[in-house]
C-alpha cells in the first residue's frame, strides 16, 4: 500500500514537472519578436532655442509604431524616445502622419513639453524640422533621418500586407518581374508563403516589387519614403515619386524657404505637379 502511494506521488511529481516545462516552452515559442512597423522621426539633431541661437543642445529622437504581442494577437504601439543632451524623455500620444510627427514629452509620468516635426527632402536625405517645447523653453528642432537597416522580417511583412489587401495586384506585381511564388487570388495560404519566401530572400525581384507596391500605400513610414526616394533618384517619372512629391510639397508650400537644395527628382516632380494644377511656384528651386 505504502509502496503504491509512493509510486503514485513520484509519478505525480514527474508529471507536473514535465507539463510545466513544456507549457513554458510553448509560451516562449508563441512570443513574437517586437519589430518596427511604421518609422517616424529617427536620428540625431540639434535643438536651438528660439530666444537665444547660442543656446542649443544635441538631440536624438526615435519615434515608431512597433508591432508587439503574441502570435495569435498582435498590436501596433506608437512610442517615442527623446534624448536632450544627457537627459532622456519618453514621448507619448505619438501621432505619425505622412511626413509628420507630433507627440507630448514626458519625464517619468509628468508632461514636460511637446514636439511637432515635419520632414523635408534635402540633398539625398530626409531632414525633420519643427519645434520642441521642453520645460517652458521653445526650441527649433532639426533632425537628420538616420539610415536604418530594415530587417528581413519587417520587409517580408510589407509583402504580406500588400498581398493580403490586394491579392489581384499582388499576383500582377509578381508576374511583372517573374514567375508567381503562388497564387494569392485562389490560395488563402499564399500570403503566408510569400512572407516566408520574402523573409528568406528579401532581395528577390518579386519581393522587392511587392514591398515597393506596399510602400506606395504607406508613405507615413519613413523607411518606405527612403525606399521610394532611392527609386526616384534614378527615375523621377515613376508614379510613386509623384505621391512622395505631394507629401513633401504640402510642407514646402507652407515653408517655401526649405526649397533650397532639394533633390533633382523632387524639383522635377514639383514642376510636373505645378503644371497639373496650373499654379506658379514660389521660392527657389534647387537641384543637384
Amino acid at each position: 500500500m505504502k509502496k503504491l502511494l509512493a509510486l503514485a506521488i513520484a509519478l505525480l511529481v514527474i508529471g507536473v514537472t514535465v507539463v510545466s516545462v513544456s507549457a513554458q516552452q510553448i509560451g516562449a515559442q508563441q512570443n513574437v519578436r517586437a519589430r518596427i512597423k511604421t518609422l517616424g522621426a529617427f536620428g540625431n539633431g540639434l535643438a536651438v532655442s528660439q530666444d537665444n541661437s547660442m543656446d542649443f543642445e544635441l538631440i536624438r529622437i526615435g519615434v515608431a509604431g512597433i508591432k508587439v504581442g503574441l502570435a495569435d494577437e498582435e498590436a501596433t504601439v506608437k512610442v517615442g524616445i527623446l534624448h536632450f543632451g544627457e537627459d532622456k524623455y519618453r514621448l507619448k500620444e505619438v501621432v505619425i502622419g505622412n511626413g509628420s510627427v507630433t507627440a507630448n514629452v514626458y519625464s517619468n509620468d509628468t508632461q514636460v513639453g511637446s514636439l511637432s516635426l515635419n520632414s523635408y527632402p534635402k540633398g539625398d536625405k530626409e531632414v525633420w524640422a519643427g519645434t520642441l517645447t521642453l520645460n517652458g523653453e521653445t526650441y527649433n528642432a532639426y533632425v537628420l533621418q538616420a539610415h536604418r537597416l530594415v530587417k528581413p522580417l519587417e520587409k517580408a511583412e510589407k509583402t504580406f500586407e500588400y498581398c493580403k489587401n490586394n491579392p489581384e495586384k499582388c499576383k500582377a506585381a509578381m508576374k511583372a518581374v517573374g514567375q508567381i511564388v503562388c497564387d494569392p487570388v485562389t490560395d488563402g495560404n499564399c500570403r503566408d508563403r510569400i512572407k516566408n519566401f520574402c523573409e528568406q530572400y528579401p532581395d528577390d525581384n518579386r519581393c522587392k516589387a511587392l514591398r515597393f507596391a506596399q510602400c506606395k500605400l504607406n508613405l507615413e513610414d519613413a523607411d518606405c519614403r527612403a525606399e521610394i526616394m532611392g527609386v526616384c533618384r534614378n527615375n523621377a517619372t515613376d508614379n510613386a515619386c509623384e505621391r512622395l512629391g505631394e507629401v513633401y510639397n504640402k510642407f514646402v508650400e507652407r515653408r517655401p524657404e526649405v526649397l533650397q537644395n532639394v533633390p533633382r527628382w523632387f524639383a522635377t516632380v514639383r514642376e510636373r505637379l505645378q503644371q497639373q494644377t496650373g499654379e506658379l511656384g514660389t521660392g527657389q528651386q534647387g537641384g543637384q
Binding site: 510545466s20 518596427i36 529617427f42 536620428g43 503574441l70 498590436a75 504601439v77 512610442v79
Partner: peptide
C-alpha cells in the same frame, strides 16, 4: 500548469516591449 497563454500582453507590457525595441534600434543605428 497548462493554462492557455492569455490573449496578449497588457497595455503596459506591450508599451515596455515596444520601447525596449525602439531603444535597441536607436542604439544600433544612431
Amino acid at each position: 500548469c497548462v493554462q492557455e497563454p492569455t490573449g496578449g500582453l497588457t497595455e503596459e507590457q506591450a508599451e515596455d516591449q515596444a520601447l525596449q525595441t525602439l531603444e535597441q534600434e536607436m542604439d544600433e543605428a544612431i
